[in-house]
Design a protein around this nucleic acid. Sequence first.
RNA 1: CGGGGCGUAGCGCAGUCUGGUAGCGCGUCUGCCUUGGGCGCAGAAGGUCGUCGGUUCAAAUCCGGCCGCCCCGACCA
Length: 490
Amino acid sequence: MRASACAKLASLSFLPQFAFRPPVSYSPRPPRLRGRSRYGAAKARQPSKDQTRMRMSQYFLPTMKENPAEAQIVSHRLMLRAGLIRQTSAGIYAWLPLGFRVLKNIERIVREEQDRSGAQEVLMPTIQSADLWRESGRYDAYGAEMLRIKDRHDREMLYGPTNEEVITVLFRDGVKSYRDLPRNLYHIQWKFRDEVRPRFGVMRGREFLMKDNYSFDIDKKGAIHSYNKMFVTYLRTFARMGLKAIPMRADTGPIGGDLSHEFIVLADTGESAVFCHKGLVDKDILSRKIDYDSDLQPIVNEWTSLYAATDDMHDKAAFEEIPEGERLSARGIEVGHIFYFGTQYSAPMKAVVAGPGGEQITVEMGSYGIGVSRLVGGIIEASHDEAGIVWPEAVAPFKVAIVNLKPDDGAVSGACQKLYDGLAAKGIEALHDDRDLRPGAKFADMDLIGIPWQVIVGPKGVSAGKAEVKDRKTGQREEVPFDQVVQRFG
RNA sequence: CGGGGCGUAGCGCAGUCUGGUAGCGCGUCUGCCUUGGGCGCAGAAGGUCGUCGGUUCAAAUCCGGCCGCCCCGACCA
């Protein structure tokens, strides 16, 4: 009501619209504390912001003991139960503090590896114009999965399901010479695909966070080098997250092109059947030193020379040539996809540069995606047990949790606080469970949310000068003198 | 988009067939007790039964429309 009245008023005015905006309050007013000053004694007793944030008694972490009926697969159940996400509409989720921390950790690793490869980060909008998509010819081709919307002037817009069109225009308008090639631009942005049937929680939502990037080269040779760079980058990215992600030759599908690999995380509950050579599982990329300007083909060949295929690309005869003991039939989740697609977009959208002889050359493109939000689910599918999530350290919301078994015991709480401060001094954020609950409930919650290391502090330990350090993954516990706990996590 | 199912307290469910004062478990709150794996006892709060309309003296329950969510398939990062 108020907004439309305001719009009407503004449209009748010949003064700038902002002059007539009602005094909207953009941030909530500070609460009035009755009976004492907001800045008085009450504040002095508050713990520091950092401590407040990481204390479970103060933390927004709604865990659930029972499985919500709507969640069918394990990662979806655990994400809801562990207080990572909440659904707001079909296939659309809100990220709660713990889940958001994981999402940001994944995003950070993706970003670091993109930067390492020489790709440059941009940020393109979520809302795009239909005209742009008409130019590439995809507006009608894309179908109902594209969320089409109209603005107030009845202009046709859409919520971007992908960004080839936008990036091609940015490139076309900004680069005119072969001297400016190659380029590789990426961004990490929310996308929307109006899936007929969203399911599996964030693994196949409608709104999802995706890293996508686009390479531009003067010729096919250059484009393949760009492709190879991303191939290696993806190997590193997933390995850093503690995942076994195997590149598999992929069908290029509706996006087109003739060179494409899917990166598949192996998980028993994966969406599709996959077949590969066992040797791929044990290959290690992180120990290699990589020069992204050198010829990466040997590394790529090393991975692609062993058989690996998803269901739809499976070649039974070729698979059976592998000695039986080295065959691996498993299930997997697609977490990344890379394409070389030549001039499919650059030609219709006229992304051309001047070559050395002044001739016009249509650039060769590739595009590369990683499902950032999907990875949160994928990692859980690949790493959980009966009790809950088992986070790989690199993506865990917290590396360490301090389990205070008796918060109302000054000695126990004092020991916990000291450990917390010691970890903080080393730059390690710990989650401090200072809630007044029975030990059993705390252990159950802690196992559910899957923090890799639990430092358990109780009265017995305090009198012996020791804490118990539990490895979430193996369940092994070890008594460690207090003064040695912090250094274990350096 | 084809086929199926479900909407009752924060979560899991019963009650609907056969209309008559809305229930159970878990969670939450208070008190006591307890304190190394979701402990025990006592008390309490919390639901216009998805929504709109119809039938009826009376609707969670019967009828119709709409909305939402889930599953299988086709599709997909």
